[in-house]
Write a protein that binds this DNA or RNA. Structure first.
Lengths: 173, 173
DNA sequence: TATTGTTATACTCTATAACTATA
DNA sequence: TATAGTTATAGAGTATAACAATA
């Protein structure tokens, strides 16, 4: 690691030679940064592979939940996708207007809106799922067949992580 | 999986009972969604653990790169952090004004700005790194000591993934 | 011609809080 | 009182494109 205690005297500063020579320090272990970069790459690959006219990953997630769970509510969608219910409103409205889903307010509880996919929604989801599987196959080539399940279960554990579960920590590493 | 081919007749729709009963379908394998959720949880834990007055993860990443690589340029920081150079400008300007870093335009190439941390910047980074390691320790408890390296190397591989490396894919799964 | 850093701008995704209508 | 969904608003994080200075 380089000496970084110089307080700012400008004369002796020297440019870093090449990118490869950089020191990452704690960033090598900084899971959050690697999660962000990996997420962005996965997102971009999905969009490139499915084309600009297809639904984006977030909407695909919602539509897939509706297709697989006719009668799902907006709140349930939010919980399943790890988002606040308010983040789902616009997507569902758009899907209803576009004819991908229909929503019903049941007499037994007129607060809730139960969503189900229309034929058009089911078909779109099915077409997208084929492409999505190609995307996953490409990712799996990177991940390695024997590591895939472990990766996903690890990500799920991190996703469920909350400060409630959190053990008290008094010292570093 | 439920029958989802209903085209919209409203009478027979039934609410999903409980969240646990939901069908995720392809979403179970949908790495991108799990990456996003895991990233958000990791980000939130970092912020909670370090406090509101500390730098956020993005700025911590930049400051750490500067501390570990005196003389690093803005473009190098961007590449190392997986972001466009334009996304770094505001952070570096702010850190300079706050006295965390100083920047020098060398006579050998007056286009570039070489950053180095001041004493104040080094101290802040060191204090934050202690807390950041507590955050990583908590994450590692979830990840499992024996899975940590593999997780990070997998995330790095996904992060470097580009359509250039991408093999042609003609069929699903 | 190419590169560094800057600026203006805009986009995506998401949450918070206040609201309504129901329960 | 509590819950489902809506709305308005705002924030974080980031990229694109055009630009000036410099190489």
């Amino acid at each position: 690691m380089n000496d970084a205690t110089n307080t700012g005297a400008a004369g002796d500063i020297v440019a870093q030679d090449v990118e490869d020579a950089l020191e990452f320090g704690i960033l090598n272990e900084f899971v959050g940064m690697h999660l962000r970069i990996a997420y962005e790459r996965a997102y971009a690959d999905f969009v490139e592979r499915l084309g600009d006219d297809a639904l984006r990953p977030g909407y695909f997630t919602i539509l897939t939940l509706v297709v697989n769970n006719p009668g799902i509510s907006q709140t349930q969608i939010g919980r399943a996708a790890g988002r606040d219910k308010s983040s789902i409103t616009k997507a569902l409205r758009w899907m209803e207007e576009t004819g991908l889903i229909s929503r019903v307010r049941p007499d037994t509880d007129r607060r809730t809106h139960l969503s189900q996919a229309t034929r058009k929604g089911v078909d779109l989801q099915a077409r997208m799922e084929i492409r999505a599987r190609q995307h996953l196959t490409a990712l799996n080539d990177l991940i390695g067949a024997d590591h895939r399940e472990e990766l996903i279960s690890t990500l799920k554990r991190i996703g469920q992580f909350s400060d409630l579960d959190r053990p008290a920590l008094d010292e570093a590493d």
